[in-house]
Simulated scan of single mutants.
Amino acid sequence: MLVSNIDTPYYAVIFSTVLSENIDGYEKTSERMITLAKQQEGFLGIESARNSIGITVSYWSSLEAISKWKNNLEHTEARVLGREKWYAKYQLRICKVERAYSFEK
């Protein structure tokens, strides 16, 4: 589901990943992180897709909200597991969204 109708400006955290061969526990942890992120102050929404690479974009009201999410204990533990076990490679970008447009039939 695409996220829409967020008043600008806001922030987007773009997390691009390539999985390793060992993904035991990955899906369960990923679902838990989405549930947990939705409970964080400043969380605005999330979009995700996976083929040969995965791209997850989460939307936040402020850099402070992103920092608090980064420092959440369960999220920190999941990041450690990701580096040790699930990800062959990842890249994270934080962007400020000044304008956004959408279309729907």
Rank of each mutant, 00 (worst) to 15 (best):
E27Y: 04
K28R: 08
S30L: 11
E31P: 01
R32Y: 10
M33R: 02
I34G: 01
I34L: 12
L36P: 02
L36T: 08
L36D: 07
A37D: 03
K38I: 04
Q39T: 15
Q39N: 13
Q39E: 14
Q39F: 06
Q40I: 01
Q40L: 03
E41M: 11
G42F: 06
G42I: 01
F43Y: 12
F43W: 11
L44P: 01
L44M: 02
L44C: 04
G45W: 02
G45K: 03
I46A: 08
I46F: 04
E47F: 00
E47N: 09
S48H: 05
A49F: 13
A49W: 12
A49H: 12
R50M: 12
S52Q: 15
S52F: 10
S52Y: 09
S52T: 13
I53G: 03
G54H: 06
G54F: 01
T56H: 09
T56R: 03
T56S: 12
S58T: 14
Y59K: 02
W60L: 00
S61A: 13
S62D: 10
L63D: 01
E64F: 00
E64I: 03
A65F: 00
S67H: 09
S67I: 04
K68P: 00
K68M: 06
W69V: 02
N72Y: 06
L73I: 13
E74F: 04
E74T: 11
E74H: 11
H75K: 09
T76S: 13
T76K: 13
E77I: 12
A78S: 13
A78D: 04
V80G: 05
V80M: 13
G82D: 05
G82Q: 03
R83E: 10
R83F: 04
R83Y: 04
E84N: 14
E84R: 09
K85D: 06
K85N: 13
W86L: 02
Y87D: 07
Y87V: 03
A88L: 10
A88G: 09
Y90F: 15
Y90T: 11
Q91K: 14
R93I: 05
I94K: 06
V97E: 06
V97I: 15
E98L: 15
A100L: 07
A100F: 00
Y101K: 10
